[in-house]
């Protein structure tokens, strides 16, 4: 009986595909929010990109250099965001995109840092990220050790609700939590315009929300813990296309 065998094989293949079917949070959104993300003229994150473009051309700091003076057009950073977090040889540690921009800000412009989650830093990050739309995320192989620290944090139970990231995002992805679908937590769209925030926020802010959600004390912005989680998430999502700056509910 060939037919049943074929069917069996098809079913098996489908099950295998379903097993590693990674799904961006984009796919969990309704058509209206997907359209909001896809159309630059409607995506509110474009307002931050606009502000980032103005900052890109502005001379600042003791060096009186603009990003544009050294880098040229923002398009020269095409694909860069997909490679972050990356190994920072000078510090022999991981650096995420926001940290990398702050490095140029403090060392090359010789200006005071903007600070995590500030509007100008998010604006520049949004501008750089937009140059990487559709670029597959790549995990830096030099960060394998940091990724495994991140994986440990991912599996560690936290907070009064005593839940790990993995228990929600690996084990319960696709189920609903008080009306909200639990996504697989792929960090493909950050920074995102989150309707809940009514503004743009970083991946670390998103992680902070998940931590306070389970009533855990959140890590400090820019901490090694968030960085390690970001590195692990980049590995988990490697190969998926960058869709930032995105929109999330």
């Amino acid at each position: 009986m060939r037919l049943p065998l074929v069917l069996l094989l098809v079913a098996w293949a489908a099950a295998a595909a379903a097993q590693d079917a990674r799904r961006s949070g984009y796919a969990d959104m309704g058509p209206a929010l997907r359209a909001m993300q896809d159309d630059d003229a409607a995506n509110p994150a474009s307002l931050w990109v606009l502000e980032g473009s103005a900052l890109w051309g502005a001379r600042d700091g003791a060096a009186q250099r603009a990003c544009a003076d050294c880098h040229g057009a923002p398009e020269t950073l095409q694909g860069v965001a997909g490679r972050y977090p990356a190994f920072d040889a000078k510090r022999a540690s991981a650096v995420d995109l926001a940290g990398r921009i702050e490095e140029c800000r403090t060392e090359r412009q010789q200006a005071p840092p903007f600070g995590r989650e500030t509007r100008p830093l998010l604006a520049l990050e949004a501008l750089v990220v937009r140059q990487s739309r559709g670029v597959p995320l790549a995990a830096d192989p030099a960060l394998a050790a940091v990724a495994s620290v991140g994986e440990t944090l991912w599996r560690q139970r936290i907070g009064q609700l005593d839940l790990s990231c993995a228990q929600c995002h690996d084990d319960r992805a696709g189920l609903r939590l008080g009306g909200t679908p639990i996504p697989q937590a792929h960090a493909t769209a950050y920074p995102v315009y989150r309707l809940e925030w009514q503004g743009l926020g970083s991946l670390q802010r998103r992680l902070r929300n998940c931590m306070t959600g389970v009533r855990a004390a959140p890590y400090a912005y820019g901490s090694q813990e968030y960085l390690a989680l970001e590195v692990y998430l980049a590995r988990r999502s490697a190969g998926m296309p960058h869709e930032g700056p995105g929109v999330r509910p």
């Binding site: 630059d40 003229a41 474009s46 307002l47 606009l50 502000e51 473009s53 103005a54």
Partner: peptide
């Protein structure tokens, strides 16, 4: 002045 508004057409 500031980069606050966007129009697309």
């Amino acid at each position: 002045m500031s980069a606050r508004g966007l129009v697309s057409a």
